[in-house]
Simulated scan of single mutants.
Amino acid sequence: MRIFTRKNVLSFDFTNTEIKVVEGKYSRKGLVIDKSISVPVARDIYWDGIIHDMEHITYLLGQALNSNNMALGEAYGVINTTEILTRGIMIPKVEDNEIDSIIHYQLEDYIPINAEDYVVNHLKLGPIMDEGIEKINLMLVCVPKSIVESHLSLIKKLKLKPMVLDYSGNAIRKLLMINQQINGSNEITGSIAAIGFGYESSIINIIDGDLLKVSRLVDIGWKYLIESLSHVFPGLNENEIKEKINALTSIDEDYESNTDEYKVINGVKTYINSVFPNIDMIFRYYSAGQVGNDVDYIVLLDGLSNIDGIEKMCTNFFNKPTIRMKSLNRVKFDGDLSKYANAIGGLIRLGEVKK
């Protein structure tokens, strides 16, 4: 039986293959996560931020929440979709309370959209000098209004009170911003590139201090790995191929070339090597943007990051220290932090797209 509580909050991370939910609370002391669940969803139910079957997804999530006795009350959401538009802009230096009005009146000059169809928010990227004039660097985040409304409606149907909708780049920014150490010994300093190997695409967010400097998608997700392995294992369906990938613990193990393990490892290495050059282009774009910009180290999230050896491949290719997120000094959580990082970051309220 689910009970109403004002103490704990639910946070949903909506992705293409599963919806991840955490129950916890955020305070000045940090984050405490009491429960976490993951609910698989089919493509005809939910895909790329679009709810195709509201009744079915409500049922699936409702059953999962009830069976795990998740709290009733406030809920936040993190949306991942290619329909979100981001654009870096510069505006004259003004007071913070004037920024929204400038964006409102000049939005269509900055980005070619119908403003009435989008919910628009902004993130400050810091001051910048432009031809000797100090300006403010901003990142616009434009979410289709239909996507915002459908997710708010879903949360209401689950007998929850929707409070905030966020997007993955900002959730990761907040999570890193409030912590000082990753995995007990790695200080959170300088510019950090958080890389998530998603199913449809890979997400790259570059965070420097409390600022999200770059947020980009690379249209090469691990579905391409599955498609490649389907030719190696023609008798297996997608779920069976996923099982083979998930069973892999390391890409550094030695196997005979005729074994399934060898073939899967070879496929993973080929896929990773195809993604890296695209990520490198984003790193170069960041470095070229302003003198002193450089990625200091890389943090791997979710997806294939659980496989030992991916970190070493990443370190060798980019010549930058690479780690998988396993723990944070201000997050108390017994589950897979790498998997639930977006949902956990969504619990942190620092001003997002609000209901």
Rank of each mutant, 00 (worst) to 15 (best):
2 R>A: 04
3 I>R: 13
25 K>W: 12
31 L>K: 07
32 V>M: 09
35 K>N: 15
36 S>V: 05
37 I>A: 08
37 I>H: 11
37 I>P: 15
38 S>L: 01
48 D>G: 02
48 D>P: 00
49 G>H: 02
51 I>Q: 02
54 M>W: 08
61 L>S: 03
64 A>M: 09
69 N>L: 13
83 E>C: 04
86 T>F: 09
90 M>C: 11
91 I>N: 08
94 V>Q: 01
99 I>T: 08
102 I>V: 13
115 A>H: 11
115 A>P: 14
116 E>Y: 07
121 N>P: 07
129 M>I: 14
129 M>F: 05
130 D>F: 15
130 D>N: 10
133 I>R: 10
134 E>C: 04
135 K>F: 05
138 L>N: 05
141 V>Y: 06
143 V>F: 07
145 K>H: 11
147 I>N: 09
154 L>I: 06
155 I>H: 01
157 K>Y: 09
160 L>Y: 10
163 M>A: 14
165 L>Q: 07
172 I>G: 14
172 I>P: 12
178 I>S: 02
180 Q>E: 15
184 G>V: 01
185 S>A: 09
186 N>L: 12
187 E>T: 12
192 I>A: 02
194 A>H: 01
195 I>S: 00
198 G>P: 03
200 E>Y: 11
203 I>E: 08
205 N>C: 07
209 G>V: 05
213 K>H: 06
216 R>N: 10
220 I>V: 15
220 I>Y: 13
222 W>Y: 13
224 Y>T: 08
228 S>G: 12
230 S>Q: 08
238 E>N: 03
238 E>Q: 04
245 I>L: 01
245 I>N: 00
246 N>A: 06
277 P>R: 11
282 I>D: 02
285 Y>W: 12
287 S>G: 07
294 D>C: 09
301 L>V: 14
302 D>P: 03
316 N>Y: 06
317 F>N: 05
328 L>H: 03
329 N>D: 15
332 K>V: 12
338 S>G: 09
346 G>V: 00
347 L>Q: 06
348 I>P: 11
353 V>D: 00
